[in-house]
Write a protein that binds this DNA or RNA. Structure first.
Ligand code: FES
Ligand code: FES
Lengths: 147, 147
DNA sequence: TTTTTTAAAGACTTTTTTGTCTTTTTATAT
DNA sequence: ATATAAAAAGACAAAAAAGTCTTTAAAAAA
């Protein structure tokens, strides 16, 4: 399971990508409101993303967060790695100090398949992919308007 | 990712199952040593398992932990549920306050497949299955002896 | 009955994660 | 220039998870 920080990061970056398409640069207040995340915690997580070069920001009036239009599509795994590292994808399923093909734990074979599929999913899915789904109405980023 | 407590619980119960086959009832000192887990923390987790009726124990000389030979095979998901609950299997992949098929987040479809496979794995795998693999040499429970 | 061995119980501590608050810096608008 | 609006920075606080310590209860052996 992802950390809350990673979850907030993904939701925030998707929201930013969506607004960027309309040439807008949202601030952390707006972002945190729209993704239902704590304001200052969201700000801190976005700072981390900027420091790790996943995202750009400008300060002062009219400032906010935005993506470099030149940069290549951002995969979810890059965000996860920036926020919490890669342990989710390398750790043993029952907590042995390391995962090993040659000295596997008793669920290694089955667990590794699932863990690898999750890694593939996060590697092959980009922020833009998710933004597309929100725009097309196939998905939502919050639980503000309920069915 | 499982909590450390769940990981220790699974390893501990597998070890107990193995020893029980030789009519032995290990104590938490032995168990924690063999699964490389903190002694008192292991004891606390085993207490929880006993309280939740996953396991039996006897105090005093010659006492220790053991399974009721009458009880049905114990699946990993029952242990996980006892220790940390079911949120791993019900939670939204990007942290929306609830997961929903009708108002899905943008990775719901793909994520739910993986999450459900993990649920199936933990539902269909029993402590005895894992004990079998240790006994047959197909798997290990610690990293004490390394290749 | 006393000693020994074991789990149970619960208070306590430490570490990690999550979250908040205040001040500083930077950019823009007036 | 000054005021305003925004992110950056960093100290701080709260909550959760992980782990430890001490005492109590129970069972069996001596
Ligand atoms: S050794 Fe446990 S998952 Fe690989
Ligand atoms: S709504 Fe996000 S995984 Fe189901």
């Amino acid at each position: 399971m992802l950390s809350k920080a990673s979850e907030y990061a993904i939701r925030a970056l998707v929201y930013i990508a969506i607004k960027n398409r309309d040439a807008m640069r949202p601030g952390y207040r707006e972002i945190s409101r729209e993704i239902e995340a704590p304001e200052q915690f969201t700000a801190k997580i976005l700072q981390t993303c900027v420091r790790k070069k996943l995202l750009l920001s400008v300060r002062g009036r009219g400032g906010g967060f935005f993506f470099d239009p030149e940069s290549k599509p951002l995969s979810l795994i890059e965000i996860i790695n920036a926020i919490e590292g890669m342990t989710l994808f390398t750790r043993c399923g029952i907590g042995l100090s390391r995962c090993s093909d040659t000295a596997p734990c008793p669920i290694h074979k089955e667990y590794a398949v699932i863990r690898d599929r999750y890694q593939q999913l996060t590697t092959n899915t980009t922020i833009d992919d998710l933004a597309d789904k929100i725009i097309s109405g196939e998905g939502v980023l919050n639980r503000i308007t309920m069915e």
